[in-house]
Amino acid sequence: MSAEIKVHLDLLLVQRKMTLTDLSETVGVTLANLSILKRGKAKAIRFTTLVAICEALQCQPGDLLKLEYGVGVKCQSKII
């Protein structure tokens, strides 16, 4: 059984009543990159980006990222 990191950015945005564009302006990360992160296509996330997103959403890294187990699913994201 392999595991993968799931990004719950969409859920947090709904809870905070924010759009991806608002987050992009607050954090200073392009909309395209945030979209990659939201869709779970990102290979890695920088600590600085993680801190900025957590500050903007007022959450912990654990709220944004969850380790989920699944059969035959490759780990797509890692933290550097």
């Binding site: 990102a42 290979k43 890695a44 996330i45 550097i80």
Partner: peptide, 8 residues
Amino acid sequence: SKEHELTI
């Protein structure tokens, strides 16, 4: 390079 592109 691809990994770098997909690093947020």
